[in-house]
Design a protein around this nucleic acid. Sequence first.
RNA 1: GGGCCUGUGGGGUAGCUUGGCAUCCUUGUGGCUUCGGGAGCCAUAGACUUGAGUUCAAAUCUCAGCAGGCCCA
Length: 472
Amino acid sequence: MPETKTKKSEDFNEWYNEIVELADLCDKRYPIKGMNVWKPYGWKLMNNVDSLTRHEMEKTNHQEVYFPLLIPESFFKKEEEHIEGFGSEVYWITHAGTNKLEERWLLRPTSETAMYPIFSLWIRSHSDLPLKTFQIVNTFRYETKQTRAFIRVREIHFFEAHTCHTDFEDAERQVKEDKEIADRLLKKLCLPYIFSKRPEWDKFAGAHYTISIDVLMPSGRTLQIGSIHQYKDNFAKPYEISYETEEGTHTYCHQTTYGMSERLLGALIGVHGDNKGLVMPPAVAPIQVVIIPIIFKGKEKNVLDVCNKLHKKLTEDNIRSHVDDREITPGNKYYDWELKGVPLRVEIGPKDVEKKEIVIVQRNTGKKRSILQEKAEKTIKNELDTIANTLFTNAKKLLDENMQRVHTVDEAKERKGIIEIPWCGNKDCAIEIENILEGNTLGEPIDKGTCDYSCPICRGAAKTWMRFAKMY
RNA sequence: GGGCCUGUGGGGUAGCUUGGCAUCCUUGUGGCUUCGGGAGCCAUAGACUUGAGUUCAAAUCUCAGCAGGCCCA
């Protein structure tokens, strides 16, 4: 059975690089660091993820918008913390043709500063609220660290939802809705995740608080795949986003954002993939079922007829299938589609045609069985559900086994993955723990009870549990 | 910012020390026989990162540029 050169369990990072290359998701030869070319299969996959996102946005009454890529420097500079947070990683446009620009423009690193001056024009009265918008665009950040396909890039495929509300409480309701959206979406991607409230010193530049959405990669590092920010009126003030209340007074809006990126693909690849290649969750797999005709000379027609008939029936049932009728051997085709992570393979040969059967094979488990043709669509549908459930269950197991609560740094040092440890609330103590564990402060659990232990560094009473992990 | 390393067909490589026809695998194209886990044979296409220097002769040596990777601050 063919396998990757580097095994996932031996060197995860090397395995990741190999699999991204082999599965034909992107071309890394574009000569600018961190800017890769999306290849058709990878782009299709990303589009499928985006479709799920759009669907969730529609269900929750968000409106899709598209703001310009370029932002005038004066827009960008209105909120001080934000400038500090992003200033060092923006790309600047200084010239147009041979002329030097009077005012510099920047490529959006995120769109707050493009959108909010315009929101202030759109929002006049309480009846304009809530304003719930989102866009799926490219953003640019000048990364100086090592880049990695889908995980750390300079041109980011970015989903960002921006909302404006009458008050803090309504914005809090939005945060709650965002968490529910994330939960539904990540369930479809078969990705178990955790929400953490980021520490003060590491929240989004300008935010009141930030909730990060993290996935545990098999390397033991966490990958932040999304974030939800409560801005309070921190941006509304400098950007003058205010409205007239029913009483006739003027008040600033409260805002939230929710963002995700192609890191979702990074997580899919890393969490579900194996030494044979990708394993795609059925919900986003560009091809959910690949049908492979086993052709013998003189019997091609019957076999191909059955294949095409099945393909047609599956299409009618909204299952994405593909008949691979290339003139290469079946084994070669198995190898190709396993690499690309197609969740279910159907094999149809002369023997099956005779018996009115088809053979189905699960990508993730390799389990193979024959079923009757007349039951094909129903069985295939169930099978795809089973595959999704198994993917989720296995990933959940990985997360559960590698997220542990401990009380001392000595215990913590022995564990891999995500550690929860009592914390007094002092930044210095957290930094000390970071140094000892050679990890980072991830944030505190948002939905777990109080912590009655003492801080392992200063021995003061712990305010909360705090999570630490090595991060991507 | 400081240091180290690397650029050879579409992909992966050999050759570089000691200058002399550029190796092998894979891929592409055309053809024949095949097809239940990477088929075989034949034919064919395709490369030394750029510039300068040394030399009868440079992938190979020297200098500079461009691009990439790694380590340290």
